[in-house]
Design a protein around this nucleic acid. Structure first.
Length: 487
DNA sequence: CGAGCGCATTCTAAAATGCGCTCGGTGCTTTAGT
């Protein structure tokens, strides 16, 4: 039986690029790292094997909303033996899932769920042939500081008896790939990687001296930009203020809002009731809106990876789009502040933490009052207070110091590379590809502001309707019936 | 680091200036049940 025959029981006729390779690798028992662009049907890569392999496939997913979306999509496609287990579920439903665990083929969970001892022990009792880590770049992007449970997935896998592992993501530099592989303990995995290059997105970057002129320029750009348009901001306040300053209809979106409001705004943007959205980096993961024509950055992302992820939300339909960044001097400072807030420096470690560890009770007091982000405080707490029973204190502090030093170095390098990137006079596309260690490529006319004059944002749409539009339309017609649900 | 806020100061007033303080991004979880 060939892998293609497996499509018989699905709504699909053919595989998209990469899917067949990934599925074959999994079915032959190989660990797989799949770096596939959004829109390439990543869900099928584990849905098919999960249906075939005996037992329960566990999918680790970063967001509750993402889990629920996937479950809804799969059920709509006729795949019923699937559920999501998370804290927003009413207790009665959670209980039902536990009782029917043996009837399920796919179960979505968060990494935090897997950190709960009682939950892990339940999973250890059943047969788990395949463990999937969706949006696997989170291991590297969030796992070190923000969501440390991402670092424990490797241990969880070992506890389950080393099931086959599939790591899925849309963007992963060499650094992120090796981070994923070492964290999940992937031995000699099959790597199915496709280019991060998005030929249809024009890259433009400019720097204004002061925040006022940036704000003014940003407003001009948003006004003339082809819609729908996402404007990424560095702070929640900027998202709110700029949204109120913008003359047309717009909305804002950030992590400090109530879930209902976030859902409602997201829905309105998805269904074109709002075509201008000012958002922090909270917006985007798992959002599949094909026709976003412009992504405008009013802040500098802390890494090239994050920049690529955010601009990648434009032009998913393959038609032309523009990614525009308008930066101000102050933007180059903000990411350094987040490093300061999350990773204790040598000075604090040497002059505060080390002396405090000599006096009983002083350590707790120092950690609770430390000037760091909440998740950093809890990391210090769990490493130095809760873990007190084992090992010498001095040794544990020294290990932490080495760890923090390395993390500061890594984060600093990412920020520095991003800063160098926006200032460089050479082709932005070539720079991005070089960062991802891909072959150099410069698009003919639709490339970047260092290669060509920036086209008028609104012209993107016009051009598409007259020239590229009919081709896309034809392609769509020819593929009717073969379309897969994007996940 | 630096933007933005409240507050005090400042030539009897009013608006402007300056000081010190605060804040700045991403999300998950606390199984159930007599």
């Amino acid at each position: 039986m060939t892998v293609t025959n497996l499509l018989q029981d699905t709504p699909f006729d053919t595989f998209r690029p990469g899917q067949e390779e990934v599925i074959s690798a999994i079915l032959s028992g190989r660990d797989t790292l799949a770096v596939l662009p959004t829109g390439s049907g990543k869900t099928l890569c584990y849905q098919l094997p999960a249906g075939i392999m005996p037992g329960l496939t566990i999918v680790v997913s970063p967001l509750v909303s993402l889990m629920d979306d996937q479950v809804t999509q799969l059920k709509m496609n006729g795949f019923q033996r699937v559920a999501a287990l998370h804290g927003n579920k009413p207790p009665a439903e959670k209980k039902r899932i536990w009782q029917k665990l043996h009837l399920l083929k796919l179960l979505y969970v968060s990494p935090e769920m897997l950190a709960v001892e009682k939950i892990r022990s339940q999973f250890k009792k059943i047969n788990v042939p395949l463990l999937v880590v969706d949006e696997a770049h989170c291991i590297s992007q969030w796992g070190h500081e923000f969501r440390p449970d991402y670092q424990n997935l490797g241990r969880f896998r070992k506890e389950l008896g080393e099931p086959v592992l599939l790591a899925l993501t849309a963007t992963a530099s060499e650094r992120v790939r090796s981070d994923i592989m070492s964290s999940l303990n992937l031995q000699n995995p099959v790597i199915e990687a496709h280019s991060v290059n998005r030929e249809n997105i024009f890259l433009a970057i400019e720097t204004q001296h002061d925040p006022q002129s940036r704000q003014q320029r940003l407003m001009e750009l948003v006004t003339s930009a082809a819609k729908p348009c996402i404007i990424y901001t560095g702070t929640r306040r900027d998202a709110e203020v700029w949204s109120s300053l913008y003359k047309g209809a717009s909305a804002y979106y950030h992590g400090g809002m109530h879930a209902e409001d976030r859902n409602s705004i997201q829905g309105q943007f998805l269904y074109n009731e709002i075509d201008v959205l000012f958002a922090t980096s909270a917006f985007g993961m798992g959002i599949n809106k094909p026709d976003v024509r412009s992504v405008i950055h009013g802040y500098m992302p802390p890494s090239i990876e994050q920049y690529v992820q955010e601009i990648g939300r434009a032009g998913r339909d393959g038609e032309r789009a523009i990614a525009y960044a308008v930066l101000a001097e102050s933007d180059f400072v903000l990411p350094w502040h987040f490093v300061e807030m999350e990773i204790p420096g040598q000075k604090w470690l040497q002059e505060e933490l080390l002396p405090a560890s000599e006096t009983p009770g002083k350590l707790e007091e120092l950690i609770e009052g430390a000037p760091f982000a909440e998740h950093t405080t809890s990391l210090l707490r769990s490493h130095l207070i809760k873990a007190k029973a084992k090992g010498s204190e001095r040794k544990r502090i020294e290990r932490l110091m080495t760890h923090f030093e390395q993390r500061r170095r890594e984060r600093s390098q990412q920020i520095q590379k991003m800063t160098d990137f926006v200032h460089a006079p050479s082709c932005f596309r070539k720079q991005v590809l070089a960062y991802f260690e891909e072959e150099p490529f410069a698009a003919d006319k639709w490339c970047c502001s260092n290669c060509h004059p920036v086209p008028k944002l609104s012209s993107a749409l016009v051009k598409l309707e007259s020239t590229v539009g009919w081709q896309a339309l034809l392609k769509q017609k020819l593929h009717v019936g073969a379309e897969q649900n994007e996940t």
